[in-house]
């Protein structure tokens, strides 16, 4: 590490912000990919990968991704839930790589739920 100045301390703090958003909380968007056996069989793994790629592309520190178990609607897998701060969560069903990327652009980044793919709003949250 080169010698630091006072300004560098702040820069390092910014650089590590994503790590500490995960550990300390303070995220604004949470995306839950349902990865029960049924979800994985229906392709949830690809949905997860797509989400992670999209986040990496936009370089946002305040979006976190978690997994959760079977949501009970095995016929409509893969499912994912998007929770924006202070808004009811929206659950999407029958997802594909393209659909989730569209949801990411419109809902996560744009703030507008994509109604045509939405199954329900205001579902339960996970711990």
């Amino acid at each position: 590490m080169p010698r630091l100045t006072v300004a560098d301390l702040q820069k390092i703090k910014e650089k590590y912000k994503a790590d500490f958003t995960l550990r300390e909380g303070g995220y604004t968007v949470k995306i839950i990919v349902h990865m029960g056996t049924c979800g994985i069989a229906a392709g949830a793994r690809n949905i997860m990968t797509a989400v992670m790629e999209e986040i990496a592309k936009v370089n946002r520190n305040d979006i976190i991704v978690t997994t959760s178990g079977c949501a009970g609607l095995c016929a409509k897998e893969p499912l994912a839930t998007v929770e924006l701060a202070n808004q009811p969560p929206v659950r999407y069903s029958d997802l594909t790589d393209e659909k989730i990327r569209e949801i990411f652009r419109e809902h996560v980044l744009g703030g507008k739920p994509v109604e045509k793919y939405a199954l329900v709003t205001g579902c339960e949250t996970t711990y």
Binding site: L22, M52, A56, I64, T66
Partner: peptide
């Protein structure tokens, strides 16, 4: 893939 989604603090 650069995004890390979970930290395991062992």
């Amino acid at each position: 893939m650069e995004k890390v989604r979970s930290h395991l603090m062992l």
